[in-house]
Design a protein around this nucleic acid. Sequence first.
DNA 1: TAGCGCATGTAATATGTTACATGATTTC
DNA 2: GAAATCATGTAACATATTACATGCGCTA
Lengths: 170, 170
Amino acid sequence: MLEYVLLGLLMKQNLTGYQMKRFMMVSTSNFFNASFGSIYPALARLEKKGMIISTAEVEHGKYSKVYTIQEAGKASFMKWLQEPANVSDTSHNHLIKLFFYDYLDSQTKQLHYEVYIRQAMAAKQKLIDTIDLAKKTAGPDRMQTLTYGIAYHTNIIDFYTRLLADNHQV
Amino acid sequence: MLEYVLLGLLMKQNLTGYQMKRFMMVSTSNFFNASFGSIYPALARLEKKGMIISTAEVEHGKYSKVYTIQEAGKASFMKWLQEPANVSDTSHNHLIKLFFYDYLDSQTKQLHYEVYIRQAMAAKQKLIDTIDLAKKTAGPDRMQTLTYGIAYHTNIIDFYTRLLADNHQV
DNA sequence: TAGCGCATGTAATATGTTACATGATTTC
DNA sequence: GAAATCATGTAACATATTACATGCGCTA
């Protein structure tokens, strides 16, 4: 997955590993993120496979490696992009706990529901705040990832608000 | 994560690794699944840590290892369960592609939208079909994982139906 | 007797995180 | 002068998948 994301970022412009990380932070972090410990080895693998090439640069005394995508990399990326994903193979971390909530007391459950509602509200607000900024730089499809994130978190707020109400009744 | 799920399954009854896999298949597979290649090593780790103990059994000539949870295992499980999860740290595989859809032609995009709608509809229907069966065995919290799954897939259907309509207009 | 289900396990491979190591420049 | 940011990379560790290896009992 990461390798394709890196190729995708390089489709538009040449970047260093550090820049790719920073780019992900502001654009994909709500649904995808990676650490330096996975980015740098991934770039090395991609170069070894001939998908990208690096050029050493020294600017203001700082050494950096700028990566450029190759034809093979473009082809590999497009092939991956053309294959549809699977919308169901998401992990839903919180559901794993919910599955075992019969072992948890009512008070702690309620606390969890409240935490999840707060988490989702904060995430949703953050996405809403991003919209205006993103409109200036991102294309229409990129904007849809924000729309989805908002709907996703709205759904979570609704769900746990219902569980909270049910828990109160009991 | 897997280790806690295995402990959670053993909270109720003693099971073999094979039975745990089968149990996950019918109860958690819509949001969590694991292969034998991860289950058996995980059980070995848990036993080494003193969380569970195994008893060798031979029935009808078939050898099996039945696992029993220990006090340390119960404590570890409850500690994990009491800690709230994070609703935002899900990966959303399909969004990663959506992010790059500006590079894709309109026809292929439309095909993807249709695939995602069909995937979500099938998954939703499967969950609905499971409800009656689950009502007999599962507690109220366990049922909620089904409710969530239905809402999650409904949200996806709505989202991609909207994108499909927008794409047609263009 | 062929194949399936039960049952356990290992090997190769992939992929990820966190922490550490290094060193430059820029900002307070 | 300290701290933050830029920038790359490795090491230890954790965890997962797929494929393979083995072998028994039951059923068609």
